[in-house]
Structures are given as C-alpha cells and as structure tokens.
Design a protein around this nucleic acid. Sequence first.
DNA 1: TCTTTACTTAAAGTTCACTTTAAATATTAC
DNA 2: GTAATATTTAAAGTGAACTTTAAGTAAAGA
Lengths: 140, 140
Amino acid sequence: MKDFYSVGETAKMFGIAASALRYYESEGLLEPVAKNESGRRVYGPKELRRIRFIVTLRDAGIPVEGIRQYVDLFYAGAETIPERKQILIDHLDRLRQEAEHLNELIAQLEQMISTYEDTFMKREMDSRKADPDYGTKPGS
Amino acid sequence: MKDFYSVGETAKMFGIAASALRYYESEGLLEPVAKNESGRRVYGPKELRRIRFIVTLRDAGIPVEGIRQYVDLFYAGAETIPERKQILIDHLDRLRQEAEHLNELIAQLEQMISTYEDTFMKREMDSRKADPDYGTKPGS
DNA sequence: TCTTTACTTAAAGTTCACTTTAAATATTAC
DNA sequence: GTAATATTTAAAGTGAACTTTAAGTAAAGA
C-alpha cells in the first residue's frame, strides 16, 4: 500500500501509542525520524522494520535501556555481532529462569488450591490453635 | 528459639526490608502489630505465619491490593472460603497464561539466536538492500 | 559513658515505561 | 468555511511497591 505513514498510523499498525513511538525516538531506540514540510514525522519502510524489531524485543521483556545498547552496537558495525548475540542469549537465560520460577509458583498455588482443598482455608494464615477467633471478625 | 522478634530481625528472616513490613501493615495486609513499652514493634508466631503467607502470595505475583482483599475476606469469616479459593484459582490462571506467553517468547528468542545464527544479525533491523550503510557508523 | 545501631513517624523520593497535558499549528471531514 | 481530529514540543504526571529521608527516641556494645 502506502510507503509512508504518520505517527498515528504507524502506532496503530503495531498496536502501540503514538507517544510510545516518540518516546522510543527520544530514548535513542529509533534514529531521529524524518519530518515533512510541516514538521510531522514520516515513517518509511526502514522505520517500520526497526519498530517491528523494537516491539519484538520489548515484548520479550528486554528493557528500553537494553535495546538502546543493542542499537548502539548495531551502529558500531559488524564487529559487534557477537556482543549483540550475547545480549540475546543472556536475555534468553533470564527468560528461562523466569519460566522455571513461574512453574514453581504454579505448582505451589496448585498445592494451595487442591491438596488442602477442604482444610487449607481454615489454616492458611493461622491455625485454629493459634487463632481461636478464626471465623469471626477481628473485634468480635 | 525466641518467640518474639524486632522488625529488623523479622525482615531478615523473610529476606525483605523492615520498611516493607511497615508498608504491609500500613496497607492492611497485616493487623496493627503490637508494640513494646518503648513503642517498638514486636512480631510473634502469629505475625510470622501471616508474613510468610503474604510473602508467598507476593512472590507468586499477587498484587498488594489483591492480598488485602484476601485478608479482608479472611476476617469476614469461614463463609468467604469459596471466594478466597476463587482468588487463588484466578491467579493460577493468570500464572499459566503468563507461562505460556513466556514459552512463546523463549521460542522466538531461540529462533532469533539459532535459526539465523550466521545471517540474522546482518538483517535484524534492516536488510542490506534497504540499508546500504550497514556496518558503518550513522554519519560515515 | 559514649557512640553506634535500631527503631519510630509522616512524607517525599525512586524506578520504569510510558502517558497526559498544554499550547500551538496543521490537516481532514463535512 | 468551519469544526473536529491529528500533530508538534517540553514537561509534568502515572502506578505499583516499596525505599529513603528527616528528626527524634531508645537500646546495645565497648
């Protein structure tokens, strides 16, 4: 279709806010975007590719600062390819650890919900022994 | 060992900050903690059990506000057990979705790192065609 | 005893990633 | 032509979950 888009159109394309695009630019994730005669940003195919890349990494949980470093390396040239790769590998490690932790939490919650199904709720925060007021309001 | 602990000792026990304990108290996750003659907080077995419960739920990603609701239900009595259970089930669902999303992201990053191992880094943000300056600094 | 460490409160500060606002200009829709 | 919508900037605001600060009191260690 078109080759060039406004900030609003571009934002909609990626499901983000126009202000987020300006923010990415201000943070150096995107090079200064070209402006038309009346000072409005014009996004071409090159910008769209970079935005797609940024959105992917953001979605993967890489912080804006990390992406900025990555982009800086990109501009530093091909000799930074191993370093860039390492950034992705490091983040992959973090994601895997996170996934592992998440699975532990899931197991813990499942335990809370099913194993103690009938009795746990009576003991969750206090045992009957320790809290004879169980089941009554604090001041009653 | 001891039956009662200071805020600092208690915090250390759970690997959180003393200020976090005061914060939880201020947010109604913990009932007002007893104070000694000189106005300092004293944490007994009952408090320790509740703190362990709170820390577990926080670790599971349940927001402070959600835990406050849970605690309120606890004080409302045994008839709120189904509702409390539902809160945990709802959060379990959220965790499972999160885990699923995380696995997709992991697969995506693995793809980025391994499938395009040798060529991807040259095409990640731009293709050669679209960016003939690839590998040089922006202004060169 | 002297000093370092721990605790108290209320209130302000922090971090991250944006979002919102304000005031001005420009474009689009009717 | 006019009104509504979109854009611009810099700067301030947001939300969550704490953390830090300030000013004061108390307890513990040498």
